[in-house]
């Protein structure tokens, strides 16, 4: 994976596959503490203790097309090489909480990447005809906060318009890019 936004996209897809109705993604960049923390919390079906214990193992997966699963191991590698850590907690039928920590200034820390594209892909994946997944994306840089909550967008749009509509997605993309620019101090 070239950047962190791609890891986030990949791991949040797991939340969608786990049947989550709400996926909360939070990114906190604290340059004073020199720490970057990414949390992905969902209310999906969760994992039992046995599966959770071996979930970091690349030879453990729920996919049926082959016997390796690299999403979590790749994120673990990305954290480990930056003096960080990856913690996953889960409870069956309650949900899963994932926390990835990086040393912000570490030379091997992958760049953030394009979070607008990641959110758009996720919202599109989560707005299938048969089910709706909501997302909360919160990004904090040294105390400055940007937040996107698809439940608010859904309320504003009404029930008959799907979040996956191109017009809506393009608005969300601009909204995220503008919001991130603001918390980055206009850059």
């Amino acid at each position: 994976m070239k950047d962190l936004s791609l890891h986030i996209l990949d791991l949040s897809q797991n939340s969608i596959s786990a049947g989550a109705g709400l996926v909360e993604i939070s990114i906190e960049e604290d340059t004073k503490e020199d720490r970057l923390t990414i949390c992905i919390n969902d209310n999906g079906k969760g994992m039992d203790k046995d599966f959770l214990e071996k979930v970091m193992d690349p030879f453990v997966t729920t996919r049926t097309s082959r016997r390796v699963g690299l999403g979590i191991p790749l994120m673990l590698a990305a954290c480990s090489r930056c003096e960080g850590e990856l913690v996953i907690e889960s409870e069956k039928n309650v949900g899963t909480r994932l926390k990835a920590v990086f040393k912000h200034s570490h030379i091997d820390r992958a760049p953030m990447g394009n979070m607008a594209e990641t959110m758009l892909s996720l919202i599109l994946a989560g707005s299938d005809v048969n089910r709706n997944v909501d997302f909360v994306y919160r990004h904090i840089i040294d105390g400055r906060v940007f937040c996107l909550d698809t439940r608010e967008i859904r309320t504003a749009l009404g029930n008959d318009i799907n979040l996956g509509e191109p017009e809506v997605l393009m608005w969300i993309k601009d909204y995220i890019n503008e919001g991130l620019k603001n918390i980055r101090g206009g850059v």
Partner: peptide, 22 residues
């Protein structure tokens, strides 16, 4: 859009298709 697809560059492909449709 699994791990393999994302790592190979599926995200920009998906968004390009969206853009073209719009």
């Amino acid at each position: 859009m699994a791990t393999c697809g994302i790592a190979a560059g599926a995200r920009p492909v998906l968004l390009t298709i969206m853009d073209e449709i719009k």
